[in-house]
Nucleic acid binder design. Sequence first.
DNA 1: TATTGTTATACTCTATAACTATA
DNA 2: TATAGTTATAGAGTATAACAATA
Lengths: 154, 154
Amino acid sequence: MSNDAELPLVLRSAYLALHRASNAQFASHGVTADQFVLLATLSEGKAITQRELALRMSSDPSTVRAMLNLLEKGGLVRRASHPTDARAKSVSITTAGNRKFQQLWKAGQKIRDKMYDSLDPDEATALVSLLRTIADSLTQESAADLRLANTVLG
Amino acid sequence: MSNDAELPLVLRSAYLALHRASNAQFASHGVTADQFVLLATLSEGKAITQRELALRMSSDPSTVRAMLNLLEKGGLVRRASHPTDARAKSVSITTAGNRKFQQLWKAGQKIRDKMYDSLDPDEATALVSLLRTIADSLTQESAADLRLANTVLG
DNA sequence: TATTGTTATACTCTATAACTATA
DNA sequence: TATAGTTATAGAGTATAACAATA
């Protein structure tokens, strides 16, 4: 195995460390790390569709639905019919959900502090920027992919 | 939500993009992204215990066991009794496992290329280093944690 | 006493495919 | 024809606790 593997592997181990720490921190609140991300995505207040929610939190509609079912049971989230598109649902966070999110945000401060304290401010900025670049490189269809798609589709 | 959330969220989205791309790429080989990491960890050839395997791949013994059961069924991995510690198992990759790993390595090249091509060489180096720092900050017990443990334990 | 691994168990996230109802 | 969401279903990873064997 060449050292090309370094970046993927360390990306994985950094994320898993974050994910574990978050789950441990949120467990006593009855919420998972991924559910926290969903609540955070809704916490700005605007109602969005399930599809958009999935997109924004790097998930997929089927997974989001399973998560919403759990969160709705706990009264943290609400689904209403969409005002203009009868196919769509309009998902929003409830008052209880917002209260829960505030608690979770506090509970997670220790974790964010650990991460940011380990870096200089400019390093943190650089890291965010580099991670965004990586994420984009993996989600954008490459030129080669598009050529292939055109070939296949005729 | 303050912008403290940026780093955790972009770390998550970069990792999930990598994880999805890897799973998609490896699916036709009948292997998951996480199983690939397990095989990669064993690919250096040396037999290690399940506990050490779990540690090295940022997993836990129970999960590793479930994964080994799957991989052993496929003949990619082998468990033998440990030479000096009768409690432990000695896990190693089989010839078929190594062959599979070579295929997976090739199949994953496209993904690694996408990541590395999006960065300057020095940016890639910096990113690896920063991610390592983050991962360490989250796995090391903090001074505060240790003080707490001492208090609790008396 | 502490540690390695197993067993049993449960839950969350993930994902695909077939379906409906709308657009 | 394409899209939003549901349903059914399956599998993979995660994690905890109780246990046996061994250190």
